[in-house]
């Protein structure tokens, strides 16, 4: 187990390198190399998830270690599906995805690194976790988080490009939608698309969590820290989705709007990560039943 875990971690690291190389040289030949390395890591990660499932005899997402491994897996899966869709269905050159692949494999690698440093002994499920709602709830959340992480990466790249092309904002807006210049700075669009993919899953995750809490604890909403923070994450993305409707009506210039939206995304994903991993840092955490056991 430990051995496969380490290998998978290094293959994710290799995928980071491959995507960086692909983005720098932008040749057709490298297109599938990066994709292949990342897919290889996904396969290894799948083996990790499956063997854990088999050994633990419960869906492998109930403690910290299992969540880290599972999250790494969904990050890779969602990104790779997105890359395939981009190339074969949307028929857009993969340079539209740019270096996102590197950032996603970095995130997967970080999750596995956390898993390596977490107690991996198999624990018995406490009664409250023995529910099918839990499985639905967690899977939804991790798919959502993976999609939202893409929007975070895209927002970063967008802001970097905007910094590079500073002073040419007007030119970008004016240039045709097929110009290379325009292509380089469509990452705000990519970020929006990722949010629209992730947000429904976030909503379903929130609702199934609430239904599960009703069955296990008798209350569908109890303002438990984890519940509250998942609501906060949801609200932040909700604000992001409604914001474009008011920005045109304000004095803010049209070219600045995507920057503001990207900054919202830059805040939003850390909120999500905090909901996922940071709950024990809260003063109110002591009374909660909802936090991964340390």
């Amino acid at each position: 187990m430990d051995f496969t875990l380490n290998i998978t971690f290094y293959v994710y690291i290799a995928a980071i390198v491959a995507y960086v190389v692909r983005e720098i040289w932008r040749t057709k030949a490298l297109r599938w190399v990066a994709f292949g390395v990342f897919s290889g890591a996904l396969v290894l990660n799948t083996i990790l998830v499956m063997t854990r499932w088999y050994e633990a005899n419960h869906a492998p997402m109930s403690d910290k270690y299992e969540s880290f491994v599972f999250f790494a897996w969904t990050i890779a899966l969602v990104y790779l599906i997105m890359e395939l869709v981009t190339i074969f269905i949307a028929r857009v050159h993969e340079s539209r995805l740019g270096i996102i692949g590197a950032l996603q494999s970095l995130l997967s690698a970080w999750m596995l690194y956390s898993a390596i440093n977490t107690d991996s002994t198999i624990k018995e499920l406490p009664p409250a976790l023995q529910s099918n709602w839990l499985v639905v709830h967690v899977i939804n959340y991790f798919i959502s988080y993976s999609a939202l992480s893409i929007s975070f990466s895209a927002a970063i790249i967008y802001l970097i490009y905007r910094a590079i092309y500073r002073g040419r904002a007007q030119e970008i807006v004016m240039s045709g939608s097929n110009s290379q210049l325009r292509k380089d700075v469509t990452f705000d669009k990519l970020a929006y698309i990722s949010v629209t993919i992730g947000f429904p899953f976030l909503t379903v995750g929130l609702i199934t969590g609430s239904i599960w809490a009703k069955g296990a604890w008798g209350t569908y909403w109890g303002w438990d820290p984890k519940e509250t923070w998942s609501l906060i994450s949801w609200l932040v993305y909700l604000a992001y989705l409604h914001l474009p409707m008011i920005l045109p009506k304000t004095k803010i210039k049209k070219t600045i709007a995507p920057i503001i939206l990207s900054i919202v995304l830059l805040v939003a994903f850390p909120v999500v990560l905090f909901t996922f991993m940071g709950m024990h840092k809260l003063p109110s955490a002591v009374d909660s039943d909802h936090i991964y056991a340390e």
Binding site: W223, P225, T228, W229, L231, I232, L235, V236, L238, A239, H242, L243, M245, I246, K249, L282, P283, S284
Partner: peptide, 25 residues
């Protein structure tokens, strides 16, 4: 009716939720 009010409410709610977990209740 405005989205502006909606966004304002959403943001205040989010901040209130944060306070509700940071300040012991």
């Amino acid at each position: 009716c405005s989205v502006k009010l909606a966004v304002i409410i959403i943001i205040i709610l989010a901040v209130a939720c944060i306070l509700g977990t940071v300040i012991l209740q």
